[in-house]
Amino acid sequence: MTTPRDLLIAAMDQPTRRPVERGDLSLALAGGELIDLLSAQAIRLDGDQIVPSHPPAMPDRLLDEAAASLVREAPYDSLDDYLWRRGRGLATAYLDALEADGQLTRQRLTHWTPSRSSPTVLVDSPARREAADRWTSDEPVLAALAAAVGIRDKPTGDSPGVDDDAVATVLAAVDDALRDLEFQRQRRALDEAAFDNIWRGG
């Protein structure tokens, strides 16, 4: 399995205080892709620029797509550019991939409901158990990405840390992108509230 798939499984498996926003999850999945590409030596970082190498065959179709999507000549992708571009709709792509691989199944409804699609649930599989093992071991990368999207609490000083500078740089870029996305949501909500007040004569 890969970091993005493990993160998605954790997001579906773990109880949360609030639902995980799909946009937040998509940005974190894109960050997980970069971390796996770093681990495979398919990319390196030059500051905040992503410099591709000649990647080995990746064990995952979506990671192959991620590697193929990178700009291969200077000026290269910045971390921020990649996260926003690649992250668009990425949670849906990973859900579809899990379903295509038999990791998800559609739950049978007790009665016919033409207006609603059947919810998807994780099946008991080796992939799900591997993700659960990585989760319970507090593996630092998965823990940091999960905390970024609100699946778990932020790591404390006693938590194992990330000791790779490039990985830490990617995680910081994910945090920055998530803060930007939340700022955009808040600004949109304020704009909509102001517009509503105009129409109400407030």
Results as ranks from 00 to 15, higher is better:
Asp101Ile: 00
Gly102Tyr: 06
Gly102His: 04
Thr105Asn: 01
Gln107Phe: 08
His111Ile: 05
Trp112Arg: 08
Trp112His: 13
Trp112Lys: 01
Thr113Cys: 05
Pro114Trp: 07
Pro114Ala: 04
Pro114Met: 03
Ser115Ala: 12
Arg116Pro: 04
Arg116Glu: 15
Ser117Lys: 09
Ser117Gly: 12
Ser118Gln: 15
Pro119Thr: 09
Pro119Ala: 11
Thr120Pro: 00
Thr120Val: 12
Val121Pro: 00
Val121Asn: 04
Asp124Met: 01
Asp124Thr: 03
Asp124Ile: 01
Asp124Cys: 00
Asp124His: 01
Ser125Gly: 02
Ser125Ile: 01
Ser125Met: 02
Ala127Lys: 06
Ala127Asp: 02
Arg128Asp: 01
Arg129His: 11
Arg129Asn: 12
Arg129Met: 12
Glu130Cys: 07
Glu130Ile: 11
Glu130Ser: 13
Ala132Met: 09
Ala132Tyr: 10
Trp135Arg: 12
Trp135Met: 02
Thr136Asp: 08
Thr136His: 11
Ser137Met: 13
Pro140Asp: 02
Pro140Phe: 05
Val141Lys: 06
Val141Pro: 03
Leu142Met: 06
Ala143Pro: 00
Ala143Val: 05
Ala144Ile: 00
Ala144Asp: 14
Ala144Glu: 15
Ala146Leu: 05
Ala146Val: 07
Ala146Pro: 12
Ala147Val: 07
Ala147Ser: 14
